[in-house]
């Protein structure tokens, strides 16, 4: 994998105390003013839905799904990253948008064995940065979450 992709261009953002990155090629857009509606279902990790130009997208509370407690994302006014792969599209609620960073693919490392977040299979790996760890999301997995992933309690 790392041989074929020379460089990763990542959109970085903050959820709780954690920094995340996601491949910018999988980002359809970033939306800061969509109004979110709550959904009458019992899935912890579903923050709600947004009406994006007539298309209704599920908003994933990534923080809740991964079990990050310090996150407010998805509860108040929020920023949404709309992730798009093949046939699926979801919005991720994030606390703070940061920057676009280019990182050599070789710096993407596997998660250490004792790394424990719930549903961490949505992470492709991590990048060590001077200011801390950057967790890199696997967009395909993020867009194809199953009920079980969403229903988890923190």
């Amino acid at each position: 994998m790392s041989n074929t992709i020379k460089k990763l261009e990542l959109m970085t953002f903050q959820i709780g105390d954690y920094s995340f990155g996601i491949d910018i090629n999988d980002i359809q857009e970033i939306n800061c003013h969509a109004r979110m509606s709550k959904v009458p279902v019992d899935y912890e990790a579903v923050a709600g839905v947004i009406n994006l130009r007539g298309e209704v997208l599920t908003v994933i509370a990534l923080g809740k799904m991964l079990g990050i407690k310090s996150s407010n994302a998805g509860s108040g006014s929020s920023n949404y990253i709309v992730v798009k792969t093949a046939n699926h599209r979801v919005a991720i609620a994030v606390d703070k948008l940061k920057d676009v960073e280019t990182i050599p693919a070789s710096e993407l490392k596997h998660l250490p064995a004792n790394f424990k977040l719930s549903n961490q299979h949505v992470l492709m790996g991590l990048v060590q940065k001077p200011e801390g760890l950057l967790l890199v999301l696997d967009s395909t997995r993020v867009t194809q979450l199953g009920i079980l992933n969403l229903a988890v309690a923190c």
Binding site: V39, V41, D42, Y43, V46, V49, G54, E55, V56, L57, T58, H88, V90, L145, G146, I147, L150
Partner: peptide
């Protein structure tokens, strides 16, 4: 509009 496939499963 179609509801996302996760939500439809409820």
């Amino acid at each position: 509009k179609p509801i996302g496939n996760h939500l439809g499963q409820c």
